[in-house]
Nucleic acid binder design. Structure first.
Lengths: 153, 153
DNA sequence: TATTGTTATACTCTATAACTATA
DNA sequence: TATAGTTATAGAGTATAACAATA
């Protein structure tokens, strides 16, 4: 009989995950899951819907493919997302004048209004989620995340 | 004809995503996707496999449910993961003496050896992924991520 | 009656290949 | 021949409900 057979199994509070906690990748993943849970609990639209609408608003005429690349969504999946947004009356498709293969995206008035309402709600939500950080820490976090993203893109 | 109809559609390099880039949640999600891509390109095991094996190694006798909670994997999905690891000869299940419903998990010798090999490879991988940060920045990033996680858990 | 783990199943998200129409 | 977007489909990951065994 080894000491392992005697010592009681650790409960959730006493778990040792320290080597995992030191991995940036593990923490990024856990935090992504936590933030998604909060998002879905707070809104009746998805993060993808919001970011697509906002990106189209900021970049009217953006090409379908450029939007997919920016949000890291594959083109076939972006097609389905845009289909939903078009059926909901938020987004309009138009063929590009200079390249008939390309699809240019823009918001309808209804879409523009919807995204502004979302933005206000998202800003308040973001404040709640980052409440454990000071404004300076929030800025530092965004900066470090951006630095890694730019390098890995 | 509005100015939007005239101005060329922005290309990928000229996209304005600044309001999204200021959201911690958006950056966390993009970085999680990027790090997953790199992980899958570098290893023939999944992040979930590695973190489960390491957590069991660090906490021999950990309960099935406690492991699921720690890694934020639902119990039915954890069952499938442990099934695979048990079939591969890495993990052993044993009923807890004090509660016959509970399943205690521990690594086989083969599992313990496998996870040590993974750890070395993962450490080198983590170094490459965070190469854009100084050691001090890496520490700051982990600290800020942990701070948010502890609050949101 | 509640909890642990499992089973069965459905659902979402994502990935791959093939197709069209343009270039 | 290559590219943009679409379609169809398959696969992985995840979520939900119900069940058996135990508390």
């Amino acid at each position: 009989m080894t000491p392992q057979d005697i010592s009681p199994a650790p409960d959730a509070a006493a778990l040792d995950l320290s080597p995992l906690d030191e991995l940036v990748g593990f923490n990024i993943h856990i935090l992504d899951l936590l933030m998604y849970q909060r998002f879905y609990a707070s809104f009746d639209f998805t993060p993808g819907t919001f970011s697509a609408l906002l990106a189209i608003k900021l970049n009217p005429g953006i090409r379908h493919g450029a939007l997919a690349d920016a949000l890291m969504i594959q083109r076939p999946n972006m097609t389905k997302l845009i289909n939903r947004l078009e059926r909901a009356g938020y987004v309009r498709r138009r063929a590009a004048k200079d390249d008939q293969r390309s699809v240019m995206l823009r918001l309808s008035d209804k879409g523009a209004q919807a995204v502004e309402e979302m933005r206000a709600a998202i800003a308040a939500h973001e404040d709640r989620l980052t409440a454990s950080l000071t404004p300076r820490e929030r800025k530092t976090l965004r900066l470090l995340l951006r630095k890694m993203i730019v390098r890995l893109r």
